[in-house]
Design a protein around this nucleic acid. Structure first.
Length: 117
RNA sequence: UUAGAUUGGUGGAUGAUCGCUUUUUAUUUUUUAUUAAAUAGAGAGAGGAAAGUCCGAACACCACGCUGUUUCCAGCAUUAAUGGAGAAAAUAGUUGCUAACGGCAAUCCUUGCAGGGGUGACUUUGCAAGAGGACAAGUGCAACAGAAAAUAUUCCUUUCCGCUUUGGCGGGAUAAGGGUGAAAUUCUAAGAUAAUUAGCUUAGACGCUCUGUUUCAAAAAAACAGAGAAGGGGUAAACUCUAUUCGGUGCAAAACCAAAUUAGGUAGGUUGCUAGAGCUAUUUAGUGAUAAAUAGCCAAGAUAGAUGAUCAUCUUAAACAGAAUUCGGCUUACAGCCAAUCUAACAUU
RNA sequence: GCCCUCGUAGUUCAACGGAUAGAAUAUGUGCUUGCGGAGCAUAGGAUCCAGGUUCGAUUCCUGGCGAGGGUA
């Protein structure tokens, strides 16, 4: 789990992200972000009830993604607010492939400091 | 011993690396302020159902002059004040427990299953289930079949009289038997009748209502006795009647502080927010639910939402599954293990 | 979090508590046509699940499951 300062807190921030046009997609995720004028990047993960009706499964998926982001934190550019939406297929993935997809998405949206093309 | 059913309990462990929320200690920096921040250490961190949101309460606010009972009509006017009527909804054997409940306990009754007794109707014991007031106040409903399904009344059989072309026809009597259906008018005796006989008359039994006595922890039921009324099929998860209960909104309630921007009280923040109808143990009272006393204990509190991720080992990704104001229930989901009871099979004595 | 509504053929809808659950459309087969379409005939196909009340339940009651909507 990420610490409080790296999580998006206010409704205003969510609205800003949803208004912005920065959208990127992979097979099992979609990602949206906008710039904020702060020193750190902030994250939020939204798991819809459509993905699973059970709260345990949704929580597990959310925690795994947060864990991946935490380990990548030093490599991410500061000053952005990012939302990640898993799709239905993300339930079937194991931890390794989740990690690869998240890394691919961040790279594609140019949020990483060391870009690899 | 094995298998199954029911009830109760439990609801992965250990280690490594990296984290999150919260409480607290130390050090450093900082502030008008023990204010705020950083680093390090220590402690705590989902459930038996946290779920469904099906009931009940606590608590908060809103509406209401007061009492009765937070509906209505009258009543009362702060040393005050009781009569009548009743919409919608909910509940329903009886007694008790509880803050309260549609929950729980005990018990009665009914139904089902099993064993014993009996030719049999039935009776008795055990277990299980039951939304279990009233159809003897009124109204409605009952396909098909059947004569007839409720102000109705002979299809067949039986029997008497008349007629007869001996095939039957007409008019009575008859509820003993048959047949239909899920269901067919409570039972008995006497009279009326040529005779037998549901309807008519009289008397009684069963059942109903009320009263008394016995039994019982208590009440109901039951048994016995007395009185009364009426004429008695089913159905109220049909209308309805009887008795009882009942204001509305839900912690995103609500209170406080408070930018941009004077106000309003918006953004945002703090409180509400975890010491409680609390948990554990013992004793006492009670058939029991439960209550009382004594002793000990403090056990998540997040806020777009912490309680985790990866790896290894054990015995297998352990089953169902994630607190959101808080409790009491109900319902639904649930692998493995442990205990008790019951059932079946096998083995031994 | 709280509140409300609805589940019937593949689809859109019917059906007083009475039993063969109906209609349109779609699907299959046949007829028609040189072939196809249209048309005609015919066949199969459903009450979300589990209990209960009742002689009898799509209908009444209870509990699940699923779908949709509202509100802050």
């Amino acid at each position: 789990m990420l610490a409080k300062e790296f999580r998006i807190k206010f409704k205003k921030d969510f609205d800003n992200i949803l208004k912005s046009r920065n959208k990127f997609f992979s097979n099992n995720f979609s990602l949206r972000f906008s710039q904020n004028n702060q020193d750190v990047s902030k994250f939020s993960i939204v798991v819809s009830a459509k993905i699973s009706k059970k709260a345990v499964i949704r929580n597990q998926l959310r925690r795994r993604i947060f864990e991946i982001l935490r380990l990548e934190m030093s490599n991410i550019k500061p000053g952005y607010s990012v939302m990640i939406f898993p799709k239905l297929g993300a339930l079937l993935l194991d931890y390794q492939t989740l990690e690869q997809e998240i890394f691919y998405l961040l790279n594609k949206s140019r949020l990483l400091k060391n870009e690899t093309r």
